[in-house]
Simulated assay, not measured.
Amino acid sequence: MGGQTQTQTMADQPILLRVLLHQHHWQTYSTFCREYDKAARRIDPSLEGKWPSRTQLHRWLSGDLKGLPYSDHCRVLEAMFPGKTAAQLFAPVTAEVPSPRQAPPPVTLNGGTQLADVTAVFSSRSAFAAAYPPSALFDNAKEISAAGLSLNLVCQSYPDHQLRRLLEGGTRIRCLFLDPHGAAIKAREAEERYTDSTLSTLTALNINVLNRLKTSLDPQSAERLEIAVYDETIRFNIVIVDRTTCVVQPYLPQARGVDSPTFVITDNTAAEGLFPVFDRIFTSLWERSRPV
Rank of each mutant, 00 (worst) to 15 (best):
20 L>T: 03
99 S>W: 15
123 S>H: 10
196 D>W: 06
291 P>I: 01
209 V>R: 15
164 R>S: 13
152 N>T: 14
29 Y>T: 01
185 I>Q: 00
228 A>V: 07
26 W>K: 01
135 S>W: 14
188 R>V: 04
247 V>Y: 07
154 V>E: 11
7 T>W: 00
8 Q>L: 13
281 I>Q: 02
22 H>C: 13
69 P>H: 05
54 R>W: 08
286 W>I: 00
164 R>P: 04
178 L>T: 12
283 T>C: 08
225 L>I: 01
219 P>R: 06
266 T>S: 05
215 T>S: 15
155 C>Y: 08
244 T>N: 08
183 A>N: 07
167 L>A: 10
53 S>K: 01
223 E>S: 08
201 T>K: 15
44 D>E: 13
291 P>E: 03
116 A>P: 00
248 V>I: 10
148 G>V: 04
224 R>N: 09
259 D>M: 07
229 V>D: 03
36 Y>M: 02
250 P>Q: 12
268 N>C: 08
54 R>V: 00
182 G>N: 08
268 N>R: 11
78 E>V: 04
107 V>A: 15
211 N>S: 15
157 S>M: 14
144 I>P: 01
288 R>D: 05
125 R>D: 12
111 G>I: 00
16 L>W: 05
80 M>D: 04
76 V>Y: 07
181 H>V: 12
239 V>S: 00
195 T>A: 11
225 L>F: 01
237 N>D: 15
259 D>F: 04
230 Y>T: 04
114 Q>R: 13
82 P>M: 06
221 S>Y: 09
25 H>F: 08
278 F>G: 02
228 A>W: 09
43 I>E: 09
105 P>E: 14
2 G>D: 14
243 R>C: 07
198 T>D: 07
136 A>M: 13
87 A>H: 11
162 Q>I: 03
241 V>Q: 02
230 Y>S: 06
288 R>A: 06
121 V>C: 15
145 S>Q: 13
28 T>I: 00
6 Q>W: 08
246 C>W: 00
120 A>P: 05
260 S>I: 03
82 P>Q: 02
24 H>S: 10
187 A>D: 15
55 T>S: 13
17 L>H: 01
264 V>D: 07
264 V>C: 12
35 E>L: 02
167 L>E: 03
114 Q>F: 12
212 R>V: 06
66 K>W: 14
54 R>D: 05
217 L>K: 03
47 L>Q: 02
62 S>Q: 10
223 E>N: 06
35 E>D: 02
232 E>R: 05
251 Y>W: 10
57 L>P: 01
114 Q>W: 11
47 L>N: 01
18 R>Y: 14
281 I>D: 01
31 T>Q: 14
95 A>L: 14
120 A>K: 02
263 F>I: 07
46 S>Y: 12
138 F>A: 00
127 A>G: 14
87 A>M: 11
180 P>E: 11
210 L>W: 09
234 I>S: 13
65 L>C: 06
178 L>V: 09
282 F>R: 04
243 R>N: 13
221 S>I: 06
54 R>G: 05
38 K>W: 13
271 A>R: 08
114 Q>C: 10
194 Y>V: 05
58 H>V: 01
218 D>K: 13
257 G>R: 08
160 D>W: 06
229 V>T: 11
192 E>M: 06
234 I>N: 12
163 L>P: 05
224 R>Q: 09
41 R>I: 08
210 L>I: 06
145 S>W: 14
18 R>P: 00
55 T>L: 10
84 K>G: 12
35 E>F: 11
38 K>R: 14
117 D>L: 01
196 D>K: 08
36 Y>K: 01
177 F>W: 10
